[in-house]
Amino acid sequence: TGEEYIAVGDFTAQQVGDLTFKKGEILLVIEKKPDGWWIAKDAKGNEGLVPRTYLEPYS
């Protein structure tokens, strides 16, 4: 389980392990790392690192 967040901007993977997403996408945050990069999963089940500055809590 995780917390749902909504993307407030588009993000394109910079390196292997990053997750590309579009503004408005709902992501499930699995782990919040202290460096500001969180592990998240998208609706298709893809998992990767995302920058927390692009996310806001979804309710």
Rank of each mutant, 00 (worst) to 15 (best):
50 V>E: 00
52 R>W: 14
20 T>L: 03
37 W>V: 07
47 E>V: 13
51 P>T: 04
41 K>W: 07
58 Y>H: 12
18 D>E: 15
51 P>M: 09
50 V>A: 10
12 T>E: 13
28 L>C: 08
39 I>R: 13
56 E>I: 13
32 K>A: 05
50 V>C: 07
22 K>S: 10
1 T>L: 12
36 G>H: 06
16 V>Y: 10
52 R>L: 10
50 V>T: 04
1 T>D: 14
43 A>M: 13
8 V>R: 13
28 L>Y: 11
53 T>A: 15
51 P>K: 09
42 D>T: 06
11 F>L: 04
29 V>R: 01
33 K>Q: 10
27 L>W: 01
46 N>D: 09
11 F>D: 01
57 P>E: 09
39 I>D: 03
19 L>H: 02
4 E>F: 15
36 G>N: 07
5 Y>K: 01
49 L>K: 14
13 A>F: 03
55 L>A: 01
55 L>C: 02
4 E>D: 07
36 G>V: 04
14 Q>W: 08
8 V>M: 15
11 F>Q: 03
1 T>W: 08
12 T>M: 11
4 E>H: 15
48 G>V: 02
45 G>N: 07
2 G>T: 10
19 L>G: 01
31 E>T: 11
21 F>Q: 00
57 P>W: 07
58 Y>S: 08
35 D>M: 04
45 G>S: 05
45 G>C: 07
53 T>H: 14
54 Y>P: 02
46 N>M: 11
57 P>N: 06
28 L>M: 12
56 E>A: 14
2 G>D: 09
45 G>K: 04
54 Y>E: 07
56 E>G: 04
58 Y>A: 11
49 L>E: 05
38 W>A: 02
10 D>I: 02
31 E>W: 08
28 L>H: 11
45 G>L: 05
9 G>A: 15
34 P>K: 10
30 I>K: 06
24 G>P: 01
22 K>D: 04
28 L>A: 05
14 Q>S: 11
29 V>L: 05
54 Y>G: 05
53 T>D: 15
39 I>A: 06
25 E>D: 15
48 G>E: 00
1 T>I: 10
27 L>N: 00
3 E>S: 11
28 L>K: 08
35 D>K: 03
31 E>I: 13
15 Q>F: 09
49 L>T: 13
2 G>V: 11
28 L>F: 10
43 A>F: 09
11 F>Y: 14
40 A>V: 09
19 L>F: 03
9 G>S: 14
27 L>C: 02
59 S>C: 14
41 K>V: 14
18 D>W: 15
7 A>F: 02
19 L>W: 01
18 D>L: 15
55 L>H: 00
6 I>Q: 06
56 E>C: 09
33 K>H: 11
6 I>C: 06
20 T>N: 09
1 T>Y: 15
28 L>W: 13
4 E>R: 15
1 T>G: 13
42 D>V: 02
23 K>Y: 08
55 L>M: 05
12 T>V: 10
27 L>I: 07
42 D>G: 03
29 V>E: 00
40 A>E: 00
7 A>L: 02
5 Y>M: 05
25 E>N: 07
50 V>R: 00
43 A>D: 12
3 E>N: 09
19 L>N: 01
43 A>E: 10
8 V>G: 04
34 P>W: 10
42 D>H: 03
16 V>D: 14
7 A>V: 04
37 W>F: 10
50 V>N: 00
33 K>S: 09
5 Y>I: 01
34 P>F: 11
18 D>Y: 15
4 E>W: 15
11 F>P: 01
2 G>I: 13
23 K>T: 10
39 I>K: 10
24 G>K: 03
24 G>Q: 03
3 E>K: 08
25 E>L: 02
12 T>G: 06
5 Y>C: 03
20 T>C: 05
42 D>Q: 03
10 D>V: 02
22 K>N: 09
38 W>K: 00
30 I>N: 03
31 E>A: 11
1 T>S: 13
10 D>L: 02
13 A>Y: 03
15 Q>V: 10
40 A>N: 00
13 A>G: 15
16 V>K: 15
47 E>D: 06
53 T>F: 12
31 E>S: 12
14 Q>K: 14
52 R>A: 15
15 Q>R: 14
38 W>R: 00
16 V>G: 10
3 E>W: 13
42 D>L: 03
57 P>R: 07
8 V>F: 05
17 G>N: 06
19 L>C: 02
36 G>W: 04
46 N>Y: 08
42 D>E: 02
39 I>T: 09
59 S>T: 15
35 D>N: 10
11 F>C: 05
21 F>K: 00
8 V>H: 06
56 E>R: 11
1 T>E: 14
18 D>V: 15
16 V>E: 12
32 K>N: 03
24 G>H: 06
3 E>Q: 12
12 T>Q: 13
38 W>E: 00
20 T>V: 04
6 I>N: 02
41 K>I: 13
3 E>A: 09
26 I>S: 03
20 T>P: 13
26 I>Y: 05
48 G>N: 01
9 G>K: 15
39 I>W: 15
30 I>C: 06
6 I>P: 01
4 E>I: 13
